[in-house]
Computed example of a mutant assay.
Amino acid sequence: MASIQEIQEEIIDEFTMFDDWMQRYEYMIDLGKSLPLIDEQYKTEDKIIKGCQSKVWVNAELEDEKVVFTADSDAIITKGIIAILVRAWSGQKPADIIAADTGFIDEIGLKEHLSPTRANGLVSMIKQLKMYAVAYQAQLN
């Protein structure tokens, strides 16, 4: 499996192929459509990421000492945003997720092209995924 850094580089490369942000938004929507969907049983209040304007559900499970994320959102752009994070971090070791740099988000220009509420939601998504990793890392120690 590719490292977090390698996956983040792939995402950066993919986003640089597009000339403008309308194309990048369309790509994010496509990424959202390919997101490994959360099982309906996990679409509960305790799985909703606080701080997002849209509803975003995230579930994390530890499989072979790696965190596997599934997610969904009721908004197409937000679903694309969580899809990028899930792609970068799902299937990785908790310690690697905790240590992962989120600079690739800035490199693709995502934060600067989001509304303030969506940018806050992005920060909340990152925090929640990392908190899952912290909890699983504690179990492994």
Rank of each mutant, 00 (worst) to 15 (best):
M1D: 06
A2S: 14
I4S: 09
Q5V: 14
E6D: 13
I7E: 05
Q8L: 09
I11W: 05
I12N: 05
I12R: 10
I12D: 03
D13P: 00
E14I: 12
E14V: 10
F15S: 02
T16H: 14
T16W: 14
D19G: 11
D20T: 05
W21G: 02
M22H: 14
M22D: 15
R24V: 04
R24Q: 14
R24D: 07
R24K: 15
E26H: 11
Y27M: 07
Y27Q: 08
Y27W: 13
Y27D: 00
I29P: 00
I29F: 13
I29S: 05
D30M: 11
G32F: 03
K33T: 09
S34R: 14
S34Q: 15
S34E: 15
L35Y: 04
P36H: 12
L37E: 14
I38Y: 00
D39T: 09
E40G: 01
Y42S: 09
T44V: 14
T44Y: 00
D46F: 10
K47E: 05
I48E: 11
K50E: 14
G51L: 05
Q53M: 15
S54E: 11
K55F: 14
V56E: 02
V58G: 01
A60R: 00
A60K: 02
E61Y: 07
L62C: 06
E63Q: 15
E63T: 13
E63N: 12
E63C: 10
E63Y: 10
D64W: 06
V67K: 02
V67E: 01
V68R: 09
V68Q: 09
F69L: 07
T70Y: 06
D72W: 02
D72T: 07
D72Y: 02
D72F: 02
S73C: 08
D74G: 08
A75L: 04
A75S: 11
I76N: 13
T78P: 03
G80H: 00
I81K: 00
I81W: 00
V86N: 00
S90M: 11
Q92K: 15
K93S: 12
K93Y: 12
A95Y: 08
A95G: 03
D96P: 00
I97A: 03
I97R: 03
I97M: 05
A99V: 11
A99T: 09
T102A: 10
T102I: 13
T102F: 07
G103A: 11
G103F: 03
G103I: 08
F104A: 06
F104V: 10
I105Y: 01
D106F: 01
D106R: 07
E107M: 10
G109A: 08
L110F: 05
L110A: 05
K111C: 06
E112V: 08
E112Q: 12
E112P: 03
L114T: 06
P116E: 08
P116D: 09
T117R: 13
R118E: 07
R118D: 06
A119K: 13
A119L: 04
N120H: 13
N120Y: 08
G121L: 07
L122C: 05
S124M: 12
M125C: 04
M125F: 03
M125D: 02
K127L: 08
K127V: 12
L129F: 07
L129W: 05
L129H: 03
K130N: 02
Y132A: 06
Y132H: 13
A133T: 09
A135W: 06
A135I: 11
A135M: 13
Y136V: 07
Y136L: 11
Y136H: 09
Q137W: 03
A138T: 15
Q139S: 14
L140R: 12
N141T: 14
N141E: 15
